Simulated scan of single mutants.
Amino acid sequence: MEFSLPNDENSLIFIKYFEDYTHQEIASSLNLPINIVKERLRKSRRRLRINYRLFTRWFNASLKCGNIHSPGAQISSPESGL
């Protein structure tokens, strides 16, 4: 299963949250309108959220089936309440 983001979305998330660029700085550096940058970030965050949920379901199901051998290594997701 593939849980990663496309390279352009991954770069955008990295620049925003790890390099701490503002929307305006990203827009200027990519030569894009600020509303396009905001929309792409919104879509990237949504895809990241979906991938995280899918990964936690896959990981926890793998633990239950015995495909992953790590006692007590369950990953909690926000909606599971763990």
Rank of each mutant, 00 (worst) to 15 (best):
L5W: 06
F14L: 12
W58C: 05
M1G: 08
I15D: 03
S77E: 10
I15P: 06
K43L: 14
L30M: 06
W58L: 12
L82R: 14
H69E: 00
G81F: 00
L30P: 06
L12V: 01
E79A: 08
W58A: 01
K64N: 15
P33C: 09
A73P: 07
G72D: 06
K43W: 09
S11Q: 14
R46L: 09
R45T: 12
A27D: 02
I26H: 03
E79L: 11
L41D: 05
F14E: 14
M1K: 03
K38E: 00
L54M: 02
P71Q: 13
Y17E: 07
I68L: 05
S70G: 05
N10Y: 08
G66W: 09
E9F: 04
R42D: 13
I26D: 07
N35L: 00
S62V: 14
R47E: 10
E39C: 10
F18K: 12
K64P: 15
N51C: 09
A61V: 10
E2V: 07
V37M: 05
F14I: 02
L63I: 12
F55R: 04
Y17I: 13
R57W: 03
Y17A: 12
K38F: 02
Y52W: 12
S70I: 05
K43R: 15
I36V: 11
E25R: 08
P6L: 02
Y21S: 06
L41N: 00
I34V: 12
R49G: 14
T56G: 14
P71F: 14
R42V: 10
I15F: 06
L48I: 14
R42Y: 10
R40D: 13
Y17L: 15
N60L: 02
F18Q: 12
E39F: 01
P33W: 02
Y21V: 03
K16H: 10
L54V: 01
G72I: 06
S28H: 02
N31M: 05
F18L: 11
L48S: 12
F3N: 09
F59K: 15
D8H: 10
K38G: 03
R57A: 12
L54D: 02
W58H: 11
S4Y: 12
I36M: 05
T22G: 02
L32I: 05
N60C: 08
L82T: 09
L54T: 03
R57D: 13
S77Y: 06
L32N: 10
A73S: 13
